[in-house]
């Protein structure tokens, strides 16, 4: 038995705003109720009459009206275009920054005797850390504080460590990377300040213990477990970042 036919259904029938199944139910109802059917026919007739009356062609609009319409059209068109240009400019700025940072990475390492040349993913980590800082400053790039390690693992195959108590996730983004996905989590890490935790797939299986790499504006402690690489980037002291990274790497096991 279908839902009883309401006044709303009858109105929506006249206005042709019912789905076909409901139309059929209304038609069954009307077939059994001649009074209601007559009323609906009158409504349909009035509707069609009004449409016919108002379908008469209008005289050509005044020049002033066309002028105003064209002006509005241009303003709205520019607005749409500006929005697109704005997006393009942001992308260009990020790419430009990437080139710049790319050029700086090799020179920026100050501790060359103590640390080996960092693997390529450290560069990616540094870039996504800088991107996260850019995003944090941009109003039009809403950050998402929703951080679901289980969902990230299921969707990307990247296992993330449990975060220490007191760390607050500010943004979590999945990026494309050369070997699949990478994840960048931006965290307010208490007295460490704003840090980024990067995790991603790498092509070469390896085990690297937490190792520090220093750059002009940031430090990264990176490590690798099998095919997954991690990097913690921030601006705190070497010791605090190393300690935090060790803790995270242990949380993974």
């Amino acid at each position: 038995m279908s839902d009883p036919i309401t006044e709303t259904d009858l109105l929506a029938y006249v206005d042709d705003q019912l789905d076909p199944a409901r139309r059929i139910e209304v038609e069954e109802h009307l077939a059994r109720n001649p009074d209601a059917a007559a009323r609906i026919m009158a409504d349909l007739k009035d509707r069609d009459t009004l449409r016919l009356i108002h379908a008469a062609p209008l005289p050509r609009p005044a020049e002033a009206m066309i002028g105003a319409a064209v002006r509005l059209e241009r303003a709205l068109g520019w607005q749409t275009l500006n929005l697109k240009l704005g997006r393009i400019a942001a992308v260009v700025a990020l790419i430009g920054f990437g080139w710049f940072a790319h050029g700086q990475v090799g020179l920026g390492i100050t501790d060359s005797e103590a640390s080996p040349k960092p693997p390529a993913f450290v560069e990616d980590a540094l870039h996504s850390h800088e991107t996260a800082l850019v995003r944090a400053r941009m109003v039009s790039q809403p950050e998402t504080a929703a951080y679901d390690a289980a969902e990230i693992l299921a969707a990307t195959g990247i296992r993330l460590p449990a975060l220490p108590e007191g760390w607050r996730v500010r943004d979590a983004q999945v990026f494309p990377s050369r070997d699949g996905h990478s994840v960048e989590i931006s965290v307010d890490a208490g007295d460490l300040g704003r840090v980024s935790l990067f995790a991603g797939h790498v092509p070469v299986f390896n085990v690297i213990d937490p190792t520090i790499a220093r750059f002009d504006d940031a430090k990264t402690v990176y490590w690798q477990t099998g095919q997954l690489a991690y990097a913690l980037t921030g601006t705190g002291s070497d010791k605090t970042i190393e300690r935090a990274a060790l803790r995270l790497s242990r949380n993974l096991q």
């Binding site: 609009p61 005044a62 002033a64 009206m65 105003a68 709205l76 607005q79 929005l83």
Partner: peptide, 20 residues
């Protein structure tokens, strides 16, 4: 016709409120 003209002028003044 006047109402449409005024509408177009108003819409132009506040075209920033139109969501792309």
């Amino acid at each position: 016709e006047d109402l449409v003209q005024d509408t177009l002028v108003r819409a132009y003044e506040r075209h920033g409120s139109f969501r792309s």
